[in-house]
Amino acid sequence: MTIETTTTGVLALILIMSLVTLVTRFGGVFIMSYVRISPRIESFINTMASSVLIAIIVPMAFGGDAGALAALMVTGVAMLAIKKPLPAIAAGILAAAFVRYFF
């Protein structure tokens, strides 16, 4: 099934994309409203939550260029050393810019 990108067609596509995204925004909350939150479920969603971040970042590091890798490594080291997010992020961005400029 294809939609022609006339004005109506584009509007339809935007609406379809919005609805699909809405399902993902509402779905997790909706399902959880039927789940009794036992300590085990709570433990699951807590470790899952921090794992979401790792699962976004690690492939980003492996798939990215040297600049991406430098940005993440510098941010990681800075965050562990000084424990302040904004300076750590700034250092990471600078590292990416630096590496991409010189290499």
């Binding site: 993902t24 925004r25 779905g27 997790g28 909350v29 959880m32 969603i45 899952m48 939550a49």
Partner: peptide
Amino acid sequence: HLLMGASLY
């Protein structure tokens, strides 16, 4: 988003 929403439940 499914997992993120669930984690805030």
